[in-house]
Simulated assay, not measured.
Amino acid sequence: MEELLAVSRPVVVGVLNVTPDSFSDGGRYTGVDQAVAHALEMRRDGAALIDIGGESTRPGAERVDADVECARVLPVIRELAAEGVPLSIDTTRATVAAVAVEAGAVVINDVSGGLADPDMARVAADAGCPWILMHWRAHSKRMRDLAVYTDVVKEVCAELGARVDAALAAGVSADRIVLDPGLGFAKTAEHNWRLAARLDQILALGFPVLVGSSRKSYLGALLAGPDGPRPVEEREAATVATTVLAVAAGAWGVRVHEVRANVDAIKVWQATRDHR
């Protein structure tokens, strides 16, 4: 997937949750046929990569066993890989990542940045595939308790830098590393906004950056009305706005639920930039 990391246009990564409890679309794509059809639709809409996950990482989510995670993702990976669809496996477990890569996944997306499973770095190094390292402090049940920072941008950069050092020491090639600031993971809404506004400092670490803001609760809080936060399904315009801001700041890619609108927005941004 060298060409995926080298593209000049920001990439859109389509989210495919084959889980019953993900915050946005849990339960919609638990059947293999449903999941494959949705992935193919996202691919037609312009997704460069489909990110498939079998365990919810929403705040407060309960963990599932590795065999459950594998049973959810592997049949879908095999079918989509046979169709030539580029796939990433969204997992914190080295065992799941290894079998997913064997089944056809070409990218490992680890929301723990290698912290949850010390064997993940070895799997990524052996596979030689891109490894997305997200900023993370704890699993879903505890992460809210750890959303404490003196300077969130400085600390996230330092902690991501430490994950990069660990990956390099394990034999992962520098040109296979992608960073993700981890919006919403052990972070308050204020932390998310600060990180989004200072994305240049994360980019200064010298690696491609993936931003995952799609439909997250801090957008719902911003758009709250008399009845409370804006519902998940009504946060798409806000998501598109964050996409444009992220790619304008230099992000390599965005991870989103609704692919077409975000692809369209990036095309508008790029056409405008190209005509300056």
Rank of each mutant, 00 (worst) to 15 (best):
V18C: 09
T19H: 09
P231L: 08
V268W: 03
D151S: 14
T272E: 06
E83N: 10
R235D: 05
W136G: 08
E233N: 13
E234L: 14
G253H: 09
N17V: 09
K187M: 12
L205N: 03
I177N: 12
Q201T: 10
L160M: 11
E236K: 03
A197Y: 09
H38I: 02
R235F: 04
D65F: 00
V68A: 15
E233I: 01
V36L: 10
T239K: 02
A241G: 15
E159F: 09
V73T: 07
A261V: 00
R28H: 11
K154H: 13
A138C: 10
R122S: 14
A265Q: 11
C70T: 12
P226L: 07
T242D: 07
E79Q: 15
D126C: 02
E69T: 08
L195I: 15
A127I: 08
H38M: 10
D90L: 02
T239C: 12
E3T: 15
R215N: 00
R72N: 10
S88C: 06
K216H: 04
E234V: 01
R260A: 15
I132D: 05
E41F: 00
R58Q: 09
K216D: 01
G184P: 07
L219A: 12
V156R: 12
S24Q: 03
V152I: 11
A103R: 03
V256L: 02
V68F: 01
R176V: 05
A61C: 06
A94R: 05
T30C: 14
V36T: 04
K154S: 15
D175W: 01
A251S: 13
G46K: 06
A246K: 06
D33Q: 11
R276N: 08
L5C: 12
V96P: 03
A224T: 08
H257D: 07
A127P: 05
I89K: 06
K187G: 01
P231N: 11
V247C: 06
L210C: 10
L205Y: 07
V68R: 09
V178F: 07
R72H: 13
W193G: 01
W252C: 09
L245Q: 11
R93L: 12
G161M: 11
P75W: 11
L210W: 10
V111F: 03
V268R: 02
G182F: 05
V254Y: 00
L179V: 05
S214A: 13
L80A: 06
A238L: 06
A103Q: 10
E79Y: 00
A37Y: 01
Q270I: 04
A116K: 11
W252H: 13
L183C: 02
C129L: 15
V36N: 04
P75H: 10
A48V: 07
I89L: 06
A224Q: 14
L245R: 11
G31D: 15
M143G: 02
A61V: 11
A97R: 09
A66P: 00
A170L: 14
I50M: 02
V263H: 11
L133F: 02
G113C: 03
D151A: 13
A261G: 15
A170E: 10
A61F: 05
G220K: 04
G225L: 01
G253D: 05
A6F: 04
V106A: 14
A162Q: 15
C157H: 02
I108Q: 05
H135W: 07
A98L: 10
A158L: 13
P86S: 02
V240W: 01
E69F: 09
V156L: 07
I50S: 06
C129W: 08
A125G: 06
L133T: 01
